[in-house]
Design a binder for these strands. Structure first.
Length: 533
DNA sequence: ATCGGCCCTG
DNA sequence: CAGGGCCGAT
């Protein structure tokens, strides 16, 4: 993956297309790409994937599920070339098959030993040290990083092709314990389509970015206006693919993916909120095993969540600011503790689907660079960051329309489930809000308050603190004054109603809701940024 | 039939 | 916070 010094010193001033081409020529697909544009790239990628889907070796491994977690902290050499990887894999396969042919006992041990052998091999591999000759300018660095990202994506794509083809090829094999005729097949289809689409879109985005972006100032300072315009730019790229179902140019070969609930009967669309998405530390190499496993567990839409969308991130052009941006995102998302480690009703963990060959692949995958993930991150699920953002938005709007939500979560691909989940969030927010209001209103009455005019809410109020703790736990957001006003009005409404014993009517709150729902104010434009948090 | 909202529950 | 039941509106 490392660039030769010559390539590094090329700089970015020249024709960008020419500069990027070598990255692709070195790839598994040998066709030189003469003129580049997003659709050509996408087409080639898809073509490559589809042509290779049924051509690769098969793998058997009953169980290697423990491997992914264990290997997360390993400092894998990301530069292992694909050929070596394939050879290693074949050797491993032979070994595994041999083991299966003999005693059918303890396949896990077989995988374990295979893994340790692989690890030993890894240690022997020469480290591809980054040449000391570092680019001199930020521009060069930026270019360098982009190159690396693209190359990483190539490798990822190549590896994914293998994984996909393994899944595909194993179709005819007996899968003990799983009546999965439709389920597995659909899962396979989804994986293939989703991976293909994701990679294609990402590369399109990057290239579109490169094609249109004027040379960037080395000291890029993200300002509100700049980021806004750039983000909307990136939205264009994404929306192009997401929204126009009639769009045939770039995605003509990509089957539109059915929702997961359609794919696996009885399995509801899983949203990964009960588990923290990948935490991307800048220096922590990520495993595609993590991706695939996550993908398999939570569905394709949630695979790369928790991160700002790529083009916006790339806009923070200087390497330093880019790093800072990503790191801070990861750190902030860490601050959320949403971990409820149970499976929501209807969510069937992949383990229970008995997909041994798939799991094997998950564990077997090589590590990937973080940058590849960033490039692949097209949000298709709601993340803890989205939840945090939604909570902050509640300070402005208690009753957001689904249109508003769509507008303010531009990095989320909306579907029915996502929309209703977001709406549900706000419903839950309101519930908490109104419960607090009623509680404090009644307390005020108990405390002997007689006049509504004596009811007020300031930032020092206990009620406000409770609300702030709920919606703005980190307390890193300046709650707008208007929210205090609305809260005060709400509290007064409750106070009056209870004072007048209106609460004897079972639906006495509805009148209050009717008042409050008219007090929504506009959400600041800043919230539209996909990487707002 | 679908959606948005509330209520209740875990 | 998510699910599920219920209701009214469309």
């Amino acid at each position: 993956m490392n660039l030769s010094p010559a390539e590094q010193s090329d700089g970015c001033e020249g024709n960008r297309s020419e500069q990027m081409l070598p990255c692709f020529r070195r790839s598994a697909y040998d066709e030189p790409l003469a003129p580049y544009n997003g659709s050509v790239i996408s087409h080639l990628l898809r073509k490559t994937i589809h042509s290779k889907l049924s051509s690769l070796d098969m793998l058997y491994c009953a169980n290697e599920s423990g491997a992914t977690d264990e290997e997360q902290s390993g400092g894998e050499d990301l530069s292992v070339d694909v050929e070596q990887h394939l050879q290693a894999k074949r050797a491993r396969v032979e070994n595994i098959i041999r083991g299966m042919a003999g005693s059918h006992g303890d396949p896990e041990r077989e995988c374990e030993s295979a893994r340790s052998r692989r690890d030993k091999r890894k240690q022997k591999l020469p480290l591809h040290q980054e040449p000391d000759a570092k680019p001199k300018t930020s521009k060069d660095e930026e270019c360098h990083k982009l190159k690396e990202q693209l190359q990483s994506m190539q490798r990822l794509l190549h590896q994914l092709q293998e994984k996909i083809s393994h899944v595909y090829d194993s179709e005819g094999e007996p899968k003990p314990g799983l009546s999965r005729e439709s389920g597995v097949k659909n899962l396979q289809e989804t994986l293939k389509c989703e991976l293909t689409r994701t990679v294609s879109e990402s590369i399109d985005s990057v290239f579109k970015k490169l094609a249109t972006k004027p040379s960037t100032s080395p000291e890029y300072k993200p300002s509100q206006d700049d980021s806004r315009s750039e983000i909307s730019d990136s939205e264009e790229v994404s929306r192009e693919h997401f929204e126009s179902d009639s769009q045939t140019e770039a995605l003509s070969l990509v089957v539109r993916k059915p929702s997961q609930s359609q794919m696996i009967p009885g399995v509801k669309r899983p949203f990964p909120l009960h588990q923290t998405p990948f935490q991307f530390g800048y220096n922590t190499p990520l495993h595609d095993s993590q991706i695939l496993e996550h993908l398999l567990k939570y569905g394709p839409h949630s695979a790369f969540s928790g991160l700002p969308c790529v083009p916006a991130s790339l806009e923070r052009s200087s390497p330093d600011s880019m790093e800072h941006s990503w790191e801070s995102v990861a750190m902030r998302s860490k601050a959320h503790h949403l971990g409820q480690h149970h499976h929501p009703a209807g969510l069937v963990p992949v383990d229970s689907l008995c997909l041994p060959h798939v799991k094997m692949e998950c564990a077997d995958l090589q590590s990937m660079e973080r940058s590849s993930f960033m490039a692949l991150n097209i949000q298709e699920g709601l993340t803890p960051n989205h939840l945090k953002k939604a909570k902050l938005m509640f300070f402005y709007t208690r009753y957001p329309s689904s249109n508003l939500l769509k507008n303010f979560f531009p990095d989320v691909k909306f579907n029915r489930c996502i929309t209703s989940q977001l709406i549900k969030w706000f419903s839950n927010f309101r519930e908490f809000y109104y419960i607090q209001m009623e509680k404090f209103a009644r307390q005020a009455i108990i405390d002997g308050v007689n006049d509504v005019k004596d009811i007020s809410i300031t930032r020092e109020s206990e009620l406000f603190r409770a609300l702030n703790m709920h919606y703005n736990k980190a307390n890193d957001f300046q709650v707008p004054d208007r929210f205090l006003e609305v809260a005060e009005i709400t509290l007064q409404e409750f106070f009056s109603a209870v004072s007048l014993s209106k609460d004897s009517d079972p639906s006495w709150k509805k009148a209050i809701y009717k008042v409050i729902c008219k007090l929504d104010s506009d959400v600041p434009e800043d919230f539209k940024s996909p990487s707002y948090l």
